[in-house]
Structure formats: C-alpha cells, structure tokens
Amino acid sequence: MRDIKIQVNDLSLYYGEKKALKEISMQIPANKVTALIGPSGCGKSTFLRCINRMNDLIPSVKITGELLVEGIDIYDKNVDVVNIRKKIGMVFQKSNPFPKSIYENIAYGPRINGIKDKTQLDEIVETSLRQAAIWDELKDRLGDSALGLSGGQQQRLCIARTLAVSPDIILMDEPASALDPISTSKIEELVHELKEQYTIIIVTHNMQQAARTSDHTAFFYMGELIEMGKTNTIFTKPEKKQTEDYITGRFG
C-alpha cells in the first residue's frame, strides 16, 4: 500500500485484566475509506478510539505497541493529545450537535482555535456545510437551533463541524446506524466524496455499508484482526474462512 497514513504495530489494549485488542498490526492508507467490521465486542470501536486516544479517558485502560500517524507515535509521552485530536476528527453514532445555532456549531471549533475574523468564520461555515452536502438545505436558517434539525441533518452537521477544524483523518463510529435509508445513503455518498481530502476510518455493524463505502476492510474478531484487504477482495474472495463465515452470515 502506498501513502500510509496510519501504521499500527502490535497494538494491544487491556481493560484491566481483559485483553480487548490483541497485537493488532495494520496499515491504513491515506485518502481512502477503511471500514472496520466484526461482531459486537470484537474490538473494532475500541480500536477506532485508540486512533485519537479516546481510550485515555478510561482509567483501567493499558495500551502497548505503537500507533503511528504520519510516522509519529501518538502514544509517545511527549505527544500533545490536543494536537492529535485537532488532526483527527470524530463522528459518533448518535448525532450530538451543541445546543446552539447551526452557525455556532460549525464556528465553535475554528473560534477556539483562534479564528476571530467574521468573514473568515463565515467562509469556514459555508465551506464545511458545502463539503458535508448540507449547505443548500441550511443556508437560509443558519441562525436556527441545530437541535431542530432532523437526525440525518444533525449527523451531516456534525460531520461539517468536524471538517471545520481541518482534520486529516476522520473517524466515524456507526455514523448512519440511527438514520433512515435516505439519510444513510446521503452519509455514505458524503463519505465517498470526502475521501479525496481526508483519510476516513469507519466502524460499522452494517456489512453492506462497509462494502458500499470503503476501499479497504478490516475484519475483527475477539480482539484480533483476522483479515484486512481491499473491500472488493474481502467481499468476493476473502482469504480466511472466519471472514467468509462472517460476511456470509454463517458465523458460529
């Protein structure tokens, strides 16, 4: 794989005594969509949260191994976590807009990053909403509360909010699982478009969604990375029987 954005070497994660991730090694290519699939409790979300050090917030967690983003080990003790999280945006399963106006939701991040100029903020708001394919729907109601939007709109607003701080990497944890099919397809199409500029890693329970949206797919099972490859290969001729059993629904 060329242009590796994230290199993972023997990464293990423990919740107290329980080993939730077992010596994961993988390479995540830049400007591609990588899907993480696997049954509940397989470690895919835990792994995703390792990428922006979200698991640091859990007291009993211990992590070994390396996770390099553009060659820098983000678990090195000299690394500034805030800087990492600036570069790595995250979108969650449940949309979580701030209880503020649409405009303020987007402008919040750039503003705390020091941008005060109104014209510049206006530009960022417009560009971010356009990139999230929601500008046309919202341009005339930027002052309205974000909480009044539909679920699908709120989720795209959250994606726009993530884009506003110019991350390199976007992590998505089940971004469409609470949405109806139309909103889901809008999010999926958006993911497809965003990969030109961002490296996207998406966790999904929905295998069809992984197939439709991703370039590479990684299959996790019981804390192990069983197989990773091009999505086309994983869904047409996976190497491992466990992968085949999972994607064909013959698991266990």
Binding site: A211, R212, T231, N232, F235, T236
Partner: peptide
C-alpha cells in the same frame, strides 16, 4: 457485475 453484486447489493 461481481463487484456490484458484492459491494452494492
């Protein structure tokens, strides 16, 4: 066609 069947349902 194989790819569309497998990836796009």
């Amino acid at each position: 066609c194989q790819s569309i069947f497998a990836l796009q349902q």
